[in-house]
């Protein structure tokens, strides 16, 4: 019984892995590829590990506990690594694909730069206001 449930979970996980890797090859730019590959492969590998734990059952305790620990660890670290990679790719100047419609990170970065400039030079604006008032 345990082995049947475990085999079904492992099969679903492998299907997710295959779909994620097809997305890794087919999608147009790195951000889309990270989107597809990270989410699908993380979920697929976690399901494989949970399936291994279910198949091993209570008779093989070290195997099941280590497998669940590994699943939790991958679930925590894989999105962090993908996020850092996407940020590094953007900062190193990899362009978005041509069919992208919005780039909110660039907008927020230009906004932050403008605000930093405005905060760094308040005296000029104040002197401008003072000139305008005197004139």
């Amino acid at each position: 019984m345990n082995e049947t449930i475990g085999a079904i979970v492992i099969g679903i996980g492998v299907a997710f892995d295959v779909l994620g890797c097809i997305g890794l090859v087919r999608l147009p730019d790195i951000y889309n590829r990270l989107q597809a590959a990270t989410k699908c492969v993380t979920l697929g590998t976690c399901m494989i590990l949970v399936g291994v734990a279910i198949s091993a059952g209570w008779d093989a305790q070290p195997l099941a506990i280590k497998s669940l620990l590994c699943a939790v660890f991958i679930l925590l670290t894989s999105p962090v690594g993908a996020h850092a990679l996407a940020r590094g790719a953007y900062r190193s100047g990899v362009a978005l694909c041509k069919t992208s419609v919005v780039d909110e990170y660039a907008e927020s970065r230009t906004l932050a730069r403008y605000q930093a400039q405005a905060a760094a030079t308040p005296t000029d604006q104040e002197s401008d206001h003072a000139k305008a008032e005197t004139a």
Binding site: I10, G13, D17, G20, C21, L24, I30, R33, L34, A37, T38, V41, T42, G44, T45, I48, L49, V52, S55, A56, L63, S67, C70, I74, S78, G81, A82, L85, G88, A89, S92, V94
Partner: peptide, 24 residues
């Protein structure tokens, strides 16, 4: 270069799955 780094990361995750299946 980030494409290659991403491929290595995903390959590592796949190797974890493969090793777990070998352990089972």
């Amino acid at each position: 270069a980030p494409d290659r780094a991403m491929g290595i990361d995903i390959l590592g995750t796949l190797i974890v799955a493969f090793t777990a299946l070998t352990g089972l």
